[in-house]
């Protein structure tokens, strides 16, 4: 196996972008919980590890009037300790809290989870329903991409060679808006999702749903935004019948495969169950909000 030649820990975004764009085999390192495992399993070690955690823009969490800004390399543990983020985006922060064990939480980042491009990534669905955008720096400058467009297939993203995901920005939720995320794993912890579902709902003062977004994971080559499931919720009081219609829409949208983590039939069924339950939890949360 070819050996890694260098470890770099640039202090500026510009330096990181330069390192990544001049060497096609260099790889950005955030928590390393996917990168190190995969490079060992495939025996494809990068030529250079570009450690992002000493770049100020890449680490940290800020909640401001416009919403949330997550440095792409911020560890899950740091995010989960942020009380204001937990309060405003409980579903998103719970999803981030599901990334692996306590040990993994100390390393894994949302940016890494997204860039890994797994259809089963726990954070993607929650980012999508919260209308998150990724801020990308590259040799040609900065651009932003909606998270639902970020992943293009298993292990594939919109990132071009030399591009770097710098941060994720999430707009502040509207009044009476809340989110939730649920995943299905056989054990209580330490598994990759066999299916996942996130929902965000907005209620009017009478409790009628005026806006909703539903996204499902691990049931297609990428996480899917399911407008039909959202449509089933909008205009309802998020009663059982509406939740069931959303569940059916989610199951219908799912295009899963058979693998060691579950059968296609199973995934199609449970993604509906998860959608129903996640939307129900989001509804409860929204009702409790001013």
């Amino acid at each position: 196996m070819p050996q890694t030649q260098a470890y770099e820990a640039p202090r500026t975004l510009a330096d990181a972008v330069r390192l990544l764009s001049t060497d096609g085999h260099a790889r950005p390192l955030a928590g390393g919980t996917d990168l190190l495992v995969q490079s060992r399993a495939t025996q494809k070690l990068p030529s250079t590890f570009v450690d992002l955690k000493r770049i100020p823009e890449l680490v940290g969490i800020e909640v401001g009037p416009d919403g949330l800004r997550l440095g792409a390399a911020t560890s899950a543990a740091v995010i989960c300790e942020h009380a204001e983020a937990r309060r405003l985006w409980p579903g998103l922060v719970e999803a981030i809290g599901l990334l692996g064990s306590t040990q993994i939480q100390g390393r894994a980042s949302v940016g890494g989870n997204l860039c890994n491009g797994s259809p089963a990534a726990d954070t993607t669905c929650s980012l999508i329903v919260n209308r998150a955008r990724g801020v990308i720096a590259g040799a040609k400058g900065e651009r932003t991409v909606e998270v639902e467009r970020f992943t293009t297939g298993p292990g594939r993203t919109v990132l071009e060679p030399g591009d770097l995901l710098v941060a994720l920005v999430v707009p502040r939720p509207a009044a009476r808006t809340a989110d939730a995320y649920l995943r299905l794993i056989p054990r209580s912890e330490m598994d990759i999702a066999a299916a996942g579902a996130a929902a965000s709902v907005t209620l009017d003062e009478r409790g009628v749903c005026t806006a909703a977004r539903v996204a499902i994971g691990a049931v297609a080559p990428t996480a899917l935004l399911v407008p039909a499931a959202a449509d089933a919720l909008i205009g309802s009081r998020l009663d059982d019948a509406a939740l069931r219609r959303a569940a059916d829409a989610a199951s219908a949208a799912a295009r899963p495969i058979d693998d060691k983590r579950g059968t296609a039939v199973y995934r199609k069924t449970v993604v509906g169950v998860l959608t129903r339950r996640a939307a129900g939890i989001a509804a409860e949360r929204a009702r409790a909000r001013p």
Partner: peptide, 17 residues
């Protein structure tokens, strides 16, 4: 690592400088 629980198998030695 700086008081945070991590798996040493997924940290590069160079990172702990």
């Amino acid at each position: 690592l700086d008081g945070r629980l991590v798996p040493a198998c997924l940290v590069l030695a160079a990172e702990v400088s």
